[in-house]
């Protein structure tokens, strides 16, 4: 068991990081910390993907010196997925930050529970 975990050290670390990020995003009350948690979580997934695509001793899939056999290169698909994923997580971070700025301007706090409490006391128009 431990041996297997050690052999797949990247994946093990990635899943642990994913858990950390997930819990931060779920449980932290501070919105900025939540956003950091989100980024830890998504970065962990990218580590997971990228480590799966890596094959020891091979090169990045860019054709140089006319070497075209696939056997010389690592799997490019996960790298592509990671790039797409990065775009997604950047836009989500932007969206969350925008919401956070708006909430902060309105309530002068970053604590989501306090904000919810204050919002509840407002009259619904």
């Amino acid at each position: 068991m431990l041996q297997a975990l050690y052999e797949n050290i990247e994946q093990t670390v990635a899943v642990i990081l994913f858990g950390i990020g997930f819990v931060i995003l779920l449980l932290q009350r501070n919105l900025i910390r939540k956003i950091i948690g989100l980024n830890i979580m998504s970065t962990a997934t990218y580590l997971f993907l990228a480590s799966m695509g890596y094959i020891h001793g091979r090169k990045a899939p860019i054709v140089v010196d006319g070497v075209t056999q696939a056997i010389h290169y690592i799997n490019p698909v996960p790298t592509g997925l990671v790039l797409t994923g990065i775009v997604v997580s950047v836009s989500f971070t932007g969206m969350m930050l925008a919401l956070t700025v708006r909430l902060y301007r309105r309530y002068r706090t970053l604590d989501i529970d306090q904000i919810a409490l204050m919002a509840r006391q407002e009259e619904v128009e």
Partner: peptide, 27 residues
């Protein structure tokens, strides 16, 4: 308004958690 902001933030957070799970699953 305040209610909508809070509701949308909650919505986004829950959806982000869910997206994370889906992405890890697909990976």
């Amino acid at each position: 308004n305040g209610h909508t902001l809070v509701a949308a933030t909650r919505y986004l957070i829950m959806n982000l958690l869910a997206s994370g799970l889906v992405l890890l699953g697909i990976a």
